[in-house]
Design a protein around this nucleic acid. Sequence first.
DNA 1: GTGAAAGCGCTAACAG
DNA 2: CTGTTAGCGCTTTCAC
Lengths: 331, 331
Amino acid sequence: MAVTILDVAKLCGYSKATVSRAFACPEQVSDKTREKVYAAARALNYTPDAIARAMVRGRTDNIGFVIYEKQYPVVLNPFYSPIFESVLQTCAQHGYSLFISSDRDLHLPNGQTCVKKQMDGVILAGHSDMQTVLDLQQQNMPVVLLNNALDLDHLLCVTTDQYGGAVLAMRHLAERGHRRIGLIAGNFSPHVYMARYNGYCDVLREIGQPIDFRLVQSIEPTVEAAIACTSLMLSLSDRPTALFCTNDTIAIGAMKAVLRAGLCIPEDIAIVGFDDSENSRLVEPELTTVHIDKVAMGRIAAERLIAQIEQGPAEKQVIQTDVRLIVRQTT
Amino acid sequence: MAVTILDVAKLCGYSKATVSRAFACPEQVSDKTREKVYAAARALNYTPDAIARAMVRGRTDNIGFVIYEKQYPVVLNPFYSPIFESVLQTCAQHGYSLFISSDRDLHLPNGQTCVKKQMDGVILAGHSDMQTVLDLQQQNMPVVLLNNALDLDHLLCVTTDQYGGAVLAMRHLAERGHRRIGLIAGNFSPHVYMARYNGYCDVLREIGQPIDFRLVQSIEPTVEAAIACTSLMLSLSDRPTALFCTNDTIAIGAMKAVLRAGLCIPEDIAIVGFDDSENSRLVEPELTTVHIDKVAMGRIAAERLIAQIEQGPAEKQVIQTDVRLIVRQTT
DNA sequence: GTGAAAGCGCTAACAG
DNA sequence: CTGTTAGCGCTTTCAC
């Protein structure tokens, strides 16, 4: 793009400064001038250079959404994608654009942490290590943690009530009269895994049901793994009457295994999932699951990050969004 | 970030240029020097400013993935999200980062088209109007069209064999002996809609089956709309024995309607979808569908765009990825 | 409301 | 292998 602000200035007879203002703050320029400037710009097909602008303003109006590498792919992840979408919307509303990258992009060849790209702040989604966050903070790069919580000063974290959700799911099953309830848990980050696992154990304890470890399995959260795992559980002589799956993908795999075994849902086996992803409504019967307010998580993370960018450092805080049980047809 | 390259230069006793090289092209600097520079950088917590770098290099190493607004949300779209993911991967491999934005971001308040953000090229996904593409080209902004084709010089388009896919699906149904085949078509862009519709008509003609317009419906591509539409078709006295749905979401809605009507798939009604989205394997029975090579589409679009960025304008070309039928359990 | 001038932080010749 | 120098294109005081 060879044509610069100077070319426009020359053509319309005004100065660089006026042309600049016509684009950046149109209200500071008289109507007549603005029109002339725009006409000249159109004639030359001039377009302000975003980089030069960012350089001098010290602001890019970009935000980075950084995913822990292991959790790739983001966009296809039924849990993260609605969150990402919500972040995207919120950013757009506030005039920010969104970069998407993995945590690999956060390190220089010499090992230092930094934001190699042009962004005013970052949302770190999923796992992220403390040193990285510290480094970023030290470089005055606003940071918000999403679906993760770290105990650091001035760090804002947005999570959800993992434990409460598990308890909701389990109590619901217990109220339906289930006692032999299996757990198929995805091997998520310890933070998430333990909270959901504890919910399972605590409700079992509440109803006086001892834990049968043959009914507690930890797997990769894929449909295939869930099918295999469930099939095994179904072959038990005293098979469970209900399954609590720690995400919807697992629950869908469990459903497949049950249906393929010729059993009925929920009559023979009841199933509860977690996340309330889009997929939970795709399957038939539709899945009872714990709703996580992914829209709120994304929105809050983005809003709080933007607040930091525009108004300075955050207070240390963990914002926990509510969960609720969505009862559909699998229980 | 108050600390600049100059601070590091002073601290380590080298010049700005050397410090710059230590980060930008480490091999051009002696080991000893590099270590000293890095040490100083670490001490000051210095990090190169990506904006200033981009400014002087005239390159940002960023690519924009721009979606036609009406097709929002991108990330949740079962068709676009795998493509986006593939673009993301390819860009990462080549050292580019990805921006995601809608076509709204392509226009200045004065109506001019431009890339307001810092990117070296853009992938325009879905519908995009010709003037926008022309404007971008005139500004020397490399462009690739994805899932769309426009007849413009030096414009590279990546699409798929929409018509061929429809023919594959229909012939498959015909080979299974179906004659009364319904069409439930999503109201996609004319480009896509017509190709798939023509495939339907042509195969019916091949098998000497007149088109019954009660069996041809055009709807919003949502599960709900598909359920409603299918229910209606099922209530016909001479209901179809098979349904060709122009995407998987519609097919899944159709499946729900069929199952809820107490009918069996594929015994009573066979169903074929289009896209081979992740969802097609989630449902039970699993969906027979036309596979679109979304990974290839994303990769090719990204690679070609990068080629343009690095090696100059493209030849006018429409690259059409192959389709194939994936026969699962609904036919 | 408009213009002149001073950089923003970095890289890329070119020299040495 | 390292240093010097000249900007990249824009915004932003500060005058007028």
